[in-house]
């Protein structure tokens, strides 16, 4: 028996909106520690890892580990029917082939339940080791989204270079080139507007903008995004999910051949 009650139901709506274009079907793993997901995009170039810790739920009951295979587009459709301030409860029986989403309005005058069919999904689970990164950039998520959107009108790839001076996003396309440099800015008064660069050594990596733009669908979840870079490693683009967890996107770098 699984029963997870999330007062901030809007968070789950935002999580699904940020996942559904990248991944079609995925297993949500429920254990005593939390509600998590790990999935690759269909071309195996990007990976997403979601964790919502059990402590973040108002009520969290998970009698035994369960894997719920869901079509994320269909799940997003159902969650779209919840209001942003609704309380969302996810329920599933151990042997059931369906999951129920219950939406309660904050003053309890409207209660809805939506039942969705589960599916069997064969998924490859990857072990993600803790890595030391050469550079970690923390910046406003809206700024990062704007940069990715702007650059994708000019080129298909972005070169992210971190130096002492700041972080540079560059692209090139048929019509020309573009470079955007964001300098370190501690913004003590408004920490959500800060740009902080922790650099062990300079790093420069190339990525497909199509994926970066897809990751920025998570922008409504957090004011800040963390971009962790190391030569020859996938970039990690992380958005915090309130105080309860994170959504991390991993993207393999492009290599010159």
């Amino acid at each position: 028996m699984l029963e997870l009650r999330l007062v901030q139901g809007g968070l789950l709506k935002k999580v699904l909106e940020s996942l559904k274009d990248l991944v079609n079907d995925a297993n949500f793993d429920c254990s005593a520690s939390g509600f998590s997901l790990q999935a690759m995009d269909s071309s195996h170039v990007a990976l997403v890892a979601l964790l919502l810790r059990s402590e973040g739920f108002e009520h969290y009951r998970c009698d035994r580990n369960l894997s719920l295979g869901m079509n994320l587009n269909n799940m997003a459709k159902m969650l779209k029917c919840a209001a942003n301030d609704d309380i969302v409860t996810i329920k599933a029986d151990d042997a059931s082939d369906s999951v129920t989403f219950m939406f309660e309005s904050p003053n309890q005058d409207k209660i809805a339940d939506f039942e969705m069919k589960l599916m069997d999904i064969d998924s490859e689970h990857l072990g993600i080791p803790e890595a030391e990164f050469q550079a970690i950039v923390r910046m406003p998520s809206a700024e990062f989204a704007r940069i990715c959107k702007d650059l994708s009108t000019i080129g298909d790839t972005v070169v992210i270079s971190v130096t002492k001076e700041g972080v540079k996003f560059s692209t090139r396309g048929d019509i020309g080139t573009a470079n955007i440099v964001c300098r370190q800015n501690p913004s003590i008064d408004k920490p959500e507007e800060a740009t902080i660069i922790e650099m062990e050594e300079p790093v420069s990596l190339t990525f497909a903008l199509r994926y970066m733009n897809s990751f920025t669908k998570a922008t409504p979840l957090a004011n800040q995004v963390t971009i962790s870079l190391s030569a020859d490693l996938p970039v990690v683009v992380e958005y915090r999910v309130a105080e309860m967890g994170y959504i991390r996107f991993y993207l393999a770098p492009k290599i010159e051949e």
Partner: peptide
């Protein structure tokens, strides 16, 4: 040619 590498190449299968 610019090649995108598969993410599986970076992580161990668990």
């Amino acid at each position: 040619v610019n090649q995108q590498r598969q993410i599986t190449a970076f992580f161990s299968k668990s």
